[in-house]
């Protein structure tokens, strides 16, 4: 197997990881704000802040890891995406920056400041929307590539049904993943009031999630038929995704096994994301960049893989430690520590 496959696998897994942890975080921010304006914050916010406070930076690093790794394994992506994404990329950075810092200001500094809460709630929905445009652009059709220049065609992007489909899917998935997680977390914390609230959110958002997924499928068939057709070779992955979706919703609906329900959500997105990714290969950026042409030279590829493996030996034990302290320590979750 060439380094391009190792590289893309590693990156894809981390992007998937970011998708899950960031969705939890972004959605929780929105729910916290929503609870505030509907005067339900006494029910929700303690729960949310106990989970979020210790982990938001870790979430951010997932993202940094992804884009640094992308440029490392596939330096040509720096050129194409760098040239094209200056504006959407900068907007995403600004939103991320506002969110991260105002979250810190709110939770370590001035508690319960409404402006901070708002910034942090609203950005939770705009960030996934703006980040998802990178995936949209990678489907091709939005770039004007000449010998020494790459330009993004904003008009096309703004008028395109596929691009709006992706934005819609990104936003509702965030709310769905997050409410599913909060249901599990509230269940663990034995917090009845919060549980019944977030459980309702979870069930509610499950409906637009499936609708949006279907919409995006249809829009892709119009936008990039080649990719769409290849997706059929991997139909079973999407089938599994729907299967896990049904399990998750069923479990939450019948008020049982919230932990398993969330694991089902993770599988749902794992398979959908994997199916999307695999069928997209060999293109990173259709039709300009393929993984095999853009991959970094072998020596660098090898070095990156070695560092990656060494890094995992450092990271996994530390992450387990963190999770045991905050996520799986029943006393902490219940607020006794």
């Amino acid at each position: 197997m060439g380094y391009e496959y190792i590289g893309i696998t590693v990156l894809w897994i981390f992007l998937y990881g970011y998708l899950i942890v960031a969705s939890i975080d972004f959605g929780a921010g929105f729910f916290a704000y929503y609870a505030r304006i509907t005067n339900k914050d006494h029910i929700m916010n303690k729960l949310i802040s106990r989970y979020l406070s210790p982990v938001w930076e870790v979430t951010n690093v997932f993202f940094v890891f992804f884009f640094v790794g992308l440029v490392g394994f596939f330096p040509d992506m720096a050129y194409y995406f760098g040239q094209a994404l200056l504006v959407p990329g900068s907007i995403a950075i600004v939103l991320l920056a506002i969110r991260g810092s105002f979250y810190a200001f709110e939770s370590y500094g001035s508690k319960n400041n409404s402006v901070y809460m708002f910034l942090y709630g609203a950005t939770g929905l705009f960030i996934p929307a703006s980040l998802s445009t990178a995936l949209t652009i990678s489907e091709g059709g939005f770039l004007n590539v000449t010998d020494d220049d790459v330009r993004l065609q904003f008009g096309e992007l703004l008028l395109n049904p596929y691009s709006w489909g992706v934005v819609f899917l990104a936003v509702v998935s965030v709310l769905y993943i997050s409410s599913m997680f909060l249901t599990y977390y509230a269940g663990r914390a034995d917090d009845e009031g919060a549980l019944s609230l977030v459980r309702k959110y979870a069930l509610f958002w499950s409906i637009p999630t499936i609708i949006a997924s279907m919409t995006v499928f249809i829009a892709l068939s119009q936008h990039n038929p080649e990719h769409f057709n290849r997706m059929f070779d991997y139909w079973w992955m999407f089938g599994l995704s729907v299967f896990f979706y049904l399990i998750a919703v069923f479990l939450v609906y019948s008020e049982r096994f919230y932990g398993w329900a969330f694991i089902a959500v993770m599988f749902q997105f794992f398979f959908a994301f994997l199916g999307y990714g695999i069928s997209k290969l060999p293109y990173l950026l259709y039709p300009h960049v393929t993984i095999s042409e853009s991959v970094t030279p072998d020596t660098m590829g090898l070095a990156l893989v070695i560092v990656f493996i060494a890094g995992l030996f450092l990271l996994i034990p530390s992450l387990i430690l963190l999770m045991r302290m905050f996520l799986f320590d029943a006393d902490y979750v219940k607020g006794k520590k």
Binding site: M300, V307, L314
Partner: peptide, 23 residues
Amino acid sequence: GKVIALPLFMETFAFFFEAIFLG
């Protein structure tokens, strides 16, 4: 990037490490 991506990549692990233990 073809030559110096390595330390940039290693840096993300240092960030991870620091962020986890800071939490």
